[in-house]
Design a protein around this nucleic acid. Sequence first.
DNA 1: AAGAAATACCCCCTCGAGGGGTATTTTTCA
DNA 2: TGAAAAATACCCCTCGAGGGGGTATTTCTT
Lengths: 208, 208
Amino acid sequence: MQKTVRIVIIEDDLILQHAYKQLIEDEPGFYVVNCYSSFEAAEKKLAADDPGVVLLDIELPGTNGVSAIPLIKKLLPKAQVIMLTVYELQDQIFGALANGASGYLTKDVPSSKIIEAIHDARSGGGPMSQKIASIVIKSFQKSTDSPLSKRETEIMRMVSEGKKRNEIADELFIELETVKTHIKNIYAKLNVNSRSDALKVLKQNRVI
Amino acid sequence: MQKTVRIVIIEDDLILQHAYKQLIEDEPGFYVVNCYSSFEAAEKKLAADDPGVVLLDIELPGTNGVSAIPLIKKLLPKAQVIMLTVYELQDQIFGALANGASGYLTKDVPSSKIIEAIHDARSGGGPMSQKIASIVIKSFQKSTDSPLSKRETEIMRMVSEGKKRNEIADELFIELETVKTHIKNIYAKLNVNSRSDALKVLKQNRVI
DNA sequence: AAGAAATACCCCCTCGAGGGGTATTTTTCA
DNA sequence: TGAAAAATACCCCTCGAGGGGGTATTTCTT
C-alpha cells in the first residue's frame, strides 16, 4: 500500500506553475494540493494543505525561497522541500541545503527528472540535478597544490578548529617550540602574521 | 563527433569486475582498456592505459580506494574517478570527494546507473547514488535547535574562522566588551571554558 | 508586563600569540 | 649518494588576547 503524496508548488511563474501541476498530476500517487505564487500567499494555508513535498522556487517575490525554507520547515517539520531554480549560485545552494532543503533542481532538467526527484525525496534520497551535484562535489575538493607541507597543513587544520599551540603540540606529540616554528614558517609562506589571516588565505585557496 | 571513452576498472571482486566490463562494453562509445584487482597492479600501467574514466572500488587490498585517488590523479590529471562501494561511511565519502573523486556510487545501484554515471562524469556532472546524495546533503544541514541566540551563533561562527574578539567587535560594529559578554554567556550555556571546547560542542551538534 | 536578547562597562590575572634568532635530525628525491 | 626540503627543538623578548568576577541599560518579542 502506498499513500498519495500531497504536493504544494510555490512558484511565481504561473506558466511553469501550471506545467509542474499538470506534470505531477499525471503521475499516479501524486496529488497537487495547492499552488502559490509567493511564500506569503502560502503561509497561512500550508498547515492545512499538509503536503509531504513542497516544490519551492528560489526567485520569489517577497520572502525568497532560501529564507522561506526554515519557515516552511517550522510549519511542516516532516515535509521534504525541493528547490527549483534557474541559477546555480554556490551561496544559494549551500544556503538552501543548510536551511534544510532535501533536494535541488535546476529548471533545465527534463520533466521526468522532477517526478523522479519527488520519488527520491520521499524515499530518503537527496535529489540533485547534475550541475548542482557537480558544484557540491567540487566544494569538497581540496587544492592539491599548496605551499604548505603535510605537517604544516595538519597544524593549520588544528588551528582552524580553534586549538591552541600547546594543545596542538600535545596532540601531535611534539614540543610547543616545534609548533611555534611550524607556524612561523607557515606565516612566512603565506605572507600573513595572524591565525585569522592565515585561515582566510587557506580557505580561499581551498587548502583546508 | 564523439570520442571513445577509455575506461579502467580497479575492483578486486573478479566477478563484479567482469560484470562491469561486460556492462560497459555493451554501451556504444565506451571501451574498457584494462581491469585490475588492486591499485598496485594498476599503478605502472595506468599512464599507458590513458583512461578518461576510472571506476575505483573503495575496499581494495593494499592501497585502499580513497588513498589511491590522489595517486591516480597525479598520473592522470584529467581522468574522472568514480568510486564504487558497498558501504556508506561519511568519512569515506568525504575523504574520497576531498581527494578528488568525481562521483560516488553504492554498488546496489542498477547497472544502468553506472553507465549513466560515466556519461554524467564525462559531461561535467557529479554522479552520486541517492543514498550518497542524501548523506552529502545532510552534511550541509545545520541544527535548528541550538541553545545559542542568533547573535551568539554569529559570533561563534566568526570565532570558528579564527577571528579575535576585537576583530569580531569591529566587524559587527559593537564594543569589545559586548563581544566578551556574549562569549561569556555562550561558554555558560555550553558548559565550556575555552574556544576550542566551545567549537567542538557546536560542531558536534551541527550548529556551525 | 514580563522575559529574553543585545548592548556596554568595571575589575582582575595569566598565559598564549607572534617575532627575533640558531641548530639538529630525518626524509625525500633527483 | 648528496643536496634540498621537512620536521624537530631551543633561546630571547613583549603585548595583549582570553577567560572569570561582577552589574546595568536598552531593545526585541511575545
